[in-house]
Amino acid sequence: MSATGKRPLGARLIVWVPYLWLALFFLVPLAIVLKISLSQNALAQPPYLPVFDISAGWQGAREFFGALSFETYTLLFSDSLYFFSYLKSLEIAGLATLILLLIGFPIAYGIARSPRRVQPILFLLVILPFWTSFLIRIYAWINILQRDGLLNDVLLALGVIAQPVVWLSTDTAIYIGLVYSYLPFMVLPIYATLEKMDEALLEAAADLGCPRAKAFWLVTLPIARPGVVAGALLCFIPMVGEFVIPDLLGGSQTAMIGQTLWVEFFSNKDWPVAAAITVVLLCLLVVPIVLYEHLQKRALEGAR
C-alpha cells in the first residue's frame, strides 16, 4: 500500500508494547528495589532513608545520592545466615530439578510416543491440577503427609513401615511438594520438542547402524535438549525463591531464601536487607542463564 515501505504507525507502536510492559513492570520496580537495597533502615514511613524528594531540587538530589551506601550488602556477606540460606535454596532447587527431570522426561516421552488420538487426553491430565488452587493442593499435601495422614496409613497397611514416619516438616516433604507442583512445567516443554521430532530420524539412525537404545542418546536426547533446558530453567528459577511450599511443608530448621526474605520484610521490617537479598538472588540466577545462552550460541556457530 504505502510506497515508502514504512509500516503504519499502529504496527510500529505494537512492537513497542512488550518493551513498554517490561520497562513499566520489570525495570522500574527493579530500580526501586535496587534503590531500597542501598538505603538504610529507619523508623519511618516508608521504613528506610533517604527518600527521594523532587522538590528539594539539585542540592536535594546530590544529598540523596550521597546517602546511598553498600552497607546492607556488607552485612549480607558477613552474616553466614544468609549464605547458608542461599546455599540451601540452591541445593533444594537443584536436587528437585534433577528429580523432576528423571520423572518428567519419561512422562513427556511416553506422551509423545503414544498414539495421536490419546495425546490430547494425556496432555490434559498433565495440566489438570491447575484447575484447583495451588494453595489448596499444598494444604492437601499437609493432610497426606501428616502423622496420621494417607501416606502413613497406606504404608502401614502395606507393611512397608512398622511405625508412622514423620514426613511433614522435613526436607523430604519440601521435595515432594516441589516435584508435585512443578512437574507440568518440566513435562510440557520436553513434550513440545519430542512431539515435533520426526520418527524417521530414529529409522535413519537405525539404518546407519545405530541400535535403538543408542539412538536415544545420540538422536532423541540432543533433539529434546532445548525442551530439557527450558523445563529445567522454568522449574529451577522459581523453586530457588519458593516460599509457600517450604513454609507449609518444611520444618523450621530449613530456611530457604524465600523464607529468610519474608522474615526480614514482615517480621524485622528491614526493607533494605530484604531488597538486597532479592538483588543478590537475581544476580545468582541471571549469571548462569546468561552463561548458558552464551555457550549455546557458541555451540550453534561452531556446530559439528
Binding site: 520426526d198 524417521a200 530420524l201 529409522e203 535413519a204 539412525a205 537405525a206 539404518d207 546407519l208 547402524g209 545405530c210 541400535p211 535403538r212 538422536v219 540432543p222 533433539i223 535438549r225 556446530a303 559439528r304
Partner: peptide, 24 residues
C-alpha cells in the same frame, strides 16, 4: 535388524539430523 543390514536408505524426507552439522 535394520542397523546390521548392509543396506542403506535415503529417506523421502531426507531425515537429516537437525542437531548435527553436515559433517556430523
Amino acid at each position: 535388524p535394520p542397523h546390521r543390514r548392509p543396506v542403506n536408505m535415503m529417506f523421502q524426507s531426507y531425515a537429516l539430523f537437525p542437531h548435527l552439522s553436515v559433517e556430523g
